[in-house]
């Protein structure tokens, strides 16, 4: 196999990298791809709880990179989705135990075993970022419609370009009502400011919290708008590049549109 390694990054913390990694990973696996998601937040692991696999951990990414276990031993098979594997972070080390050089070598092994490898990058642009990006072929930058998040995204995009990676943008936590009122940056503004290709728009959605509570993947939750958005992002990453970008809409707007289609209202 000749897998693709994609780093999910943002600069700013708490914008949805881990949510995106778990959801896009699950969606790609549902599309019959062999997928590994890797928690690179050494010392502060989270991807395992988000995926509901926290009590299956025996080996972790540090063990696998350092050759203390086989890659297969560190890759935990998902409970619900075939072909989805988690390689958890270690909780007791710090980020300096791994080096970018280690990661480049590890990347070679990963490419042979999986179609897609998603690296869940920690916040910041220090060692954890360096390690997550070292082996990556591609990058997805997650950004929320907030000034601070966009600014950090811009910085990270610059760092990725410097490594000859052309990143794509996911805008997360969109509140359509606020965008429509003009109180939130729109994705058009963000693409304009960052001048980068868009790969998907994800609305704010209560199902995200419910999914983290239960450990059941967001993309398996019925009627989750965010889950659907991540599925479409996965399809685009998986080659459906002409799949149109769906813009999250408020209920208000939705009913008005239906109304006007039926010739009601103005």
């Amino acid at each position: 196999m000749d897998g693709r390694i994609i780093v999910i990054t943002s600069g700013k913390g708490g914008v949805g990298k881990t949510t995106a990694t778990a959801s896009i990973g699950a969606a790609l696996a549902l599309q019959r791809k062999r997928v590994a998601v890797i928690d690179m937040d050494i010392g502060l692991r989270n991807l395992d709880v988000v995926m509901g696999l926290e009590n299956r951990i025996i080996f972790n990414v540090v063990d696998a990179v350092k050759g203390k276990c086989k890659l297969k031993q560190a890759a935990i098979k998902d409970r619900r989705i075939d072909d989805l594997f988690l390689i958890p972070a270690s909780q007791s080390d710090n980020k300096n135990v791994l080096s970018p050089k280690d990661m480049v070598q590890f990347g070679e092994k990963l490419r042979r075993e999986f179609d897609f490898v998603l690296m869940d990058c920690p916040a910041g642009i220090e060692r954890g970022f360096e390690n997550s990006v070292a082996a990556a072929d591609e990058a997805v930058v997650v950004c929320t419609p907030e000034v601070s998040s966009v600014r950090d995204a811009d910085r990270v995009i610059g760092l990725l370009y410097a490594r000859s990676i052309t990143p794509k943008l996911v805008v997360n936590r969109i509140i359509p009502e606020m965008v429509e009122k003009g109180d939130m940056l729109s994705h058009v503004d963000m693409v304009d400011v960052l001048s980068i290709e868009l790969v998907g728009l994800v609305p704010m959605d209560d199902h995200v919290l419910i999914s983290t509570n239960t450990g059941i993947p967001l993309v398996l939750q019925k009627k989750s708008k965010a889950g659907e958005a991540f599925q479409r992002i996965a399809m685009r990453i998986n080659g459906a590049t002409d799949l149109p970008i769906e813009v999250p809409q408020s209920q208000d707007r939705f009913w008005k549109k239906i109304g006007s289609k039926l010739g009601l209202g103005k």
């Binding site: 709880v49 509901g52 926290e54 419910i210 983290t212 509570n213 239960t214 450990g215």
Partner: peptide, 8 residues
């Protein structure tokens, strides 16, 4: 799901 979260 909050209760499930607490148990986990």
């Amino acid at each position: 799901s909050g209760e499930i979260a607490k148990q986990r």
